[in-house]
Every structure is written in structure tokens, then in C-alpha cells.
Design a protein around this nucleic acid. Sequence first.
DNA 1: GCTGAAGGTTGATCGAAATCAGGGCTTAGG
DNA 2: CCTAAGCCCTGATTTCGATCAACCTTCAGC
Lengths: 248, 248
Amino acid sequence: MTLRQDIHSSGIPVLCLPCEARRRGVCGALEPDDLAQLAKTSSRHNIEPGVELIGDAEAVDCYSNVLSGVVKLTKSLSDGRQQIVGLQFAPDFLGRPFKMKSAINAEAATAVSLCSFPRAAIERMMKQSPEFVHRLLKQALNELDEAREWMVTLGRKTAPEKVASFLLMIARNIDSNVDPAARSACFELPMTRADISDFLGITNETVSRQLTSLRMDGVIRIENNRRVTVDSMSRLERRCGGRGAIAV
Amino acid sequence: MTLRQDIHSSGIPVLCLPCEARRRGVCGALEPDDLAQLAKTSSRHNIEPGVELIGDAEAVDCYSNVLSGVVKLTKSLSDGRQQIVGLQFAPDFLGRPFKMKSAINAEAATAVSLCSFPRAAIERMMKQSPEFVHRLLKQALNELDEAREWMVTLGRKTAPEKVASFLLMIARNIDSNVDPAARSACFELPMTRADISDFLGITNETVSRQLTSLRMDGVIRIENNRRVTVDSMSRLERRCGGRGAIAV
DNA sequence: GCTGAAGGTTGATCGAAATCAGGGCTTAGG
DNA sequence: CCTAAGCCCTGATTTCGATCAACCTTCAGC
């Protein structure tokens, strides 16, 4: 299985061989020698939950692949109100081409491991590999789709629907069992109730109440505040509000 | 002024010469001969307000530059709730690379004129011009920024702040006077109260009340329900809620 | 052990926006 | 002319989720 993909793996850096970013992430666009060139400039980091990756403080001048964990992207109003505008899972690409001051903050929601590259290396790669830019475009369009999906949730769904939709999204992104059409799911919530409320545009009290309500109705089970089991995904789906966009 | 840009305009199709898309849109990425090739396949359309451009109905298989007018992108839940997830102004590029079923609807909000290309022509151009893909990436990232900006508005701003923010965005996008730091502005609202409410995630009654409130307070003047005059942009800005993201 | 802080749950109350309802203005068509 | 349909505004009432407040559990540090 690994073999089939790696028949021509000669020249691929050892570190990159098992890397998910090569299979589904931006590195998948690169030829072995491009990859080798990029890998020489790369460095790996393990980040503690809560650590700020991009923000007003230190203008981190690099790009990274998310190898594991979850990164939250937030925007704040000057009076402290905060909104999470995106979540990045492995193997998403983190960083913002063409822009220094992004007015966005990135923070490790869970423990996170990153594979980072200096800005210059990425920009060089964008010049020499059209396929790489192509991948970046694909990822950007995916993020755009997700953002728009959440705009519907933020603007038009009720609090119970918001919480159900959130659980569904998390289940689909980090469920241990890979089957996308699985009938049940079990996972760790990657963030606190306060984070979830910042994601859904509601308060943490409301998040708590809605989780309780789902638990009471037998839709989910919760252990240790974090571990969630969904026995019937379809029941959860039915709580998400009108199925998104009827378009066939 | 036009001259300076067009010293080497030999080979540029006549239709494209005055086109805004060449200056600020995706066509700006193209060499004269690429442009000529693309122009041969292009067609111009004038669309009435309310006409659906992309949707479940007819899967329009083309891409377009918006030459004038405003296009609204919407997503709907199956029970009829609707959310506008984006507005496209000239010279934005309309259409979705890599995907047929987009689960998104596009509709002319005002009278719109388009310059359309068949899907195949655009895909060929993406293969032969890396600079073109580069432009598409830039536009996608811009749209992503805008979407995220609006997520903050949808999730964390009050109704009065939402309406003020909307007016501010419109003013900056379609104000007749070009100066971005203008102290005052005057423009036509490109959509009905119902559309605005679908954009802001509130009801049309609330939009109406907030507009009245802004009018009573002397922040704006309204003629014919559509024509809005903002005498002091800074007063309007102060009504938009905490200034977005403090990041320097 | 005690203490304090952080995260979470639950209850009571309040308020902003939704909902329900009516009425005005403009435009198109008989 | 009259009528009907859109679009918009405004008032009365209701409701969902915010706010305020209390309490629980866990965990780190002394």
C-alpha cells in the first residue's frame, strides 16, 4: 500500500516519506528534488496547547504544515469579543502568502506538531513549481468553502443546531476511524467550551446547555468533559438544521 | 494615463483595452497573446437583477469576469433559511475551479454585465500560464479574508453594528468617488432590505429599524429607499463595533 | 491536608432581536 | 380609474440566548 505510492521514492527525504503532507497536503505537488530542496530548510516543532503561532506579538516569518493536532485561527474586536474563523487539521498548510500583517491570530488548540519552512523557501518554491501554486489554490478554495459553510451556521442556525453542526464537523475531521460514512464516531473535543462558543458565536453557558441536552436525549455520550461518543451519526445530522444547500 | 500602461498594447484585443479586469482582475496576469487567445472564446452578457447565474437549475459551465454590477453568492438550508456568503463586485472573477457542484448559488443583485469564458478555455489558461493561477490564488485569498471578516460580524456583532458594518463595506466597494479615505460617501444600495438581512443573519424588520435609527441620529441620509449618503464616514465607523483585529 | 485557579454545569432573570400584524408607497396592469 | 404585488416601515408581543450568579470538579502548588 505504501509501496505503490513510493516506487519512485528515491530522492525523497527520509523525514518526508511517512508524512501525510506528501500524500494529501501541499507537498504532494512537489517532485522529489524540489521536495529535497525544501526539506533542507525545514524544521519540526512540537507546540503546547495555548501557544500563539501567528499574532501581533511575534510576526513569525514562516509557513508550516500541520502534522498533528488542531490550530485555531481567530479574529478579535478591540473590545475583546473574539471569533474563531477557521480550524486547521493535519495536513493543512498554515501561513498566508502575499501578506505580512494578516490581522489574524493562530493558536495551538491542542498539542500541535508542525513542519515549518522559512518564508523565502516557500516563495522560491511558488516561483519554480506551478503545481505547488496549484495546490495552494486548491487549499485556499477549500478553506473558502468551509468558511462559507460556517457563515450559514453563524448567521442562520439556532444554538442547538450550531452545537450539533460543530460536533459533526469535528467527528468528520478527527474521528479515529477513517470511514467518512461511519454510523458512529468517537473523538476528543480539541478545544474548551469557551473555544467552541467563540467558534459558534454563542456563549460557553449555551454550549454547555446544548451539550447537556444532546446527552440527555441520548444523541451523544461524554466522558471527562472531552471524550465524545456519537452512537448514531444520522441522529446527530438530523439536529444540524436544514441540510445545507439543496443543490444536487 | 491610459497611455503609460498601454505602450505595448499591440496585440491586445480591442474589447479588452478599456477593461477593468485587465487592470485589477485576473486578466492582468496574461500576456497579450494569451489574452488574445482567451478573448476569442469570450462573450459578453447583460443580466437583469434577480437572474440566477449559478445554481441547482442550470449548471452553467463557464467562468466570468464581473464588469459592472453586484453578484450575490448564497447558500440555503433545506427549510428555506438563506445566507448570503459573498458579494462580487467588478472586476471580481466568478466561477469555481476544480468543482462542478458548488452547493452555492450566484444571482445578479443589480443589473450585471459579465465577460464569460467557457470552462475549457480557462482550464487551458491555467495550464499554460502560472501567473494566471497566481492571480486566481490571490483572488481566492482575498475572498477568504473577506469571508472571515464577515464571520466576525455574523458571530460577534450586534444588529446595529452589523448594519453599520454593511454600509461601510458597500461604501468602500462601490462609492462613486474613488478616494478610499474619503470623509463622506454616496451610493446606491445594491440590494433589498431582505437581501441585506440575509447577508447579516438578521431579519428585514431589524435591518429597517437599524437604518431608521442611523437616519434619525444623522449618520446617514436615505432617498428613494436605495440612495444612501454618509456625511461622516468616521461616525459610521464608530458604529461598527470594536475596530476589527487590533493586529498592528 | 488546604487553597486557588481554571474549566464546566446549572438556575434565575433580562434583553435584543424574532415574530406577528398592520399599514404606506410605488409600480404594473386591468 | 382601481387593484394587486413588491418593498418598506413601524408597533406589540414573544422567545431565544445572554447575562448574572452559584456551585462542582480537577489539578497544581504550598
